[in-house]
């Protein structure tokens, strides 16, 4: 059992109030990319009715599509735990979180479809046929309840950190507005993860050991969620779709979570982990990015099962869509 007094109390997530009501109805166009980039550099927000340059449209579309796919796959993972979660309260939480994630996916697919690159049906079909991608963390199997806690604590926190960084400076109006809500709701999920982890940290030796095994499985996928170092010419950064480099986000995450886990009496599965004697910063071993590349081509340890489960869920619910369509037609 570790020294629990050192584990800091979960902090409430606070977002600097940023009014996302930036819509003023003015339709803009830009004579060339230089003018467009100047507009973005000055903090300009792009709206759907603007004359959006093709390159930007495609980039922002792919980014939102990937986010939507990840929320959707995340919601399905959470759903798997509704019947298995221990106790009514945890089941209610799993249900609410699953509904949140699917709700986020819904909003994101609406905004992505509006960009006119693909319809929502095309995006869903591409996802279910394994042609498009989703976050690395949903390509692994969740083996146990403590795995699910590790996902809620480590993975949700990593996802939240990257969403907060996108929100801060995001140049696409409708996406920025959705992120505001997503972040508010994910903050609550993270608090829930922290609470469950603390419970295990204070639990029996067996529970503590189970939690440790789950941390061992999920630590590396969580820090890999931020991706390899950003390329210097990354257009997502240049166009203010993202606002921070992957390596900076990853480093901040490590500085926060290494002391938290150690404080809870857990170890970090990294033999090369050390604290720099000069600046006191935590340094991790070099990451081998080859496995991530395979995972991102849907070749991860659990990718095939996850995608086929998503496909089954989609076709099992076909009758609901048919019934809703029929009801809508009858009302009209």
């Amino acid at each position: 059992m570790g020294n629990l007094k050192r584990l800091p109390r979960p902090k409430k997530i606070r977002i600097t109030p940023t009014n996302v009501r930036l819509y003023n109805g003015v339709v803009r166009n830009w004579p060339n990319m230089d003018e467009f980039e100047k507009f973005l550099n000055e903090g300009g927000i792009v709206e759907p009715n603007d004359d959006i340059p093709e390159g930007y449209r495609n980039a922002v579309f792919s980014f939102i599509e990937m986010h939507a796919n990840s929320e959707y796959m995340g919601g399905l993972t959470e759903r798997d735990w509704i019947p298995k979660a221990p106790g009514l309260h945890r089941k209610m939480t799993a249900l609410a979180k699953s509904q949140d994630e699917i709700g986020h996916a819904h909003l994101l697919y609406m905004v992505a479809a509006d960009l006119g690159v693909k319809t929502r049906e095309e995006m869903i079909t591409d996802l279910l046929e394994g042609r498009t991608h989703f976050h690395n963390v949903f390509h692994y199997r969740v083996h146990s309840w403590t795995d699910q806690i590790a996902v809620a604590y480590l993975v949700d926190a990593a996802a939240l950190a990257s969403q907060q960084a996108v929100f801060k400076n995001c140049s696409y109006g409708p996406y920025k507005r959705i992120l505001r809500r997503v972040i508010a709701e994910e903050g609550f999920h993270m608090r829930n993860g922290e609470e469950m982890l603390l419970l295990m940290a204070r639990g029996t030796d067996v529970q503590h050991q189970m939690m440790q095994e789950s941390i061992d499985r999920w630590w590396l996928p969580s820090i890999q969620l931020f991706g390899p170092d950003s390329r210097p010419d990354d257009e997502l950064l240049r166009w203010h779709i993202k606002s921070e480099r992957n390596e900076d986000l990853r480093d901040r995450y490590i500085q926060k979570f290494v002391p938290q886990l150690l404080g809870g009496g857990f170890t970090i599965p990294d033999p090369g982990l050390r604290q720099d004697s000069e600046d006191g910063k935590w340094k991790i071993s070099e990451i081998d990015w080859q496995p991530l590349k395979k995972i991102m081509r849907n070749g991860g340890p659990d990718s095939a099962r996850r995608i086929s489960d998503a496909r089954r869920a989609w076709y099992d619910a076909e009758w609901v869509r048919v019934a809703l369509d029929a009801a809508a037609k009858a009302d009209a």
């Binding site: 819509y23 109805g25 709206e47 759907p48 009715n49 609410a96 509904q99 949140d100 699917i102 709700g103 986020h104 819904h106 909003l107 609406m110 905004v111 509006d114 109006g173 409708p174 507005r177 959705i178 809500r181 709701e185």
Partner: peptide
């Protein structure tokens, strides 16, 4: 667009003018 959103107390609609959910 949907009778329920991220929570059961909210529905989702689409604004065709400013094109935001």
């Amino acid at each position: 667009r949907s009778d329920v959103g991220g929570t059961a107390c909210r529905s989702v609609e689409w604004c065709p003018d400013c094109r935001n959910p």
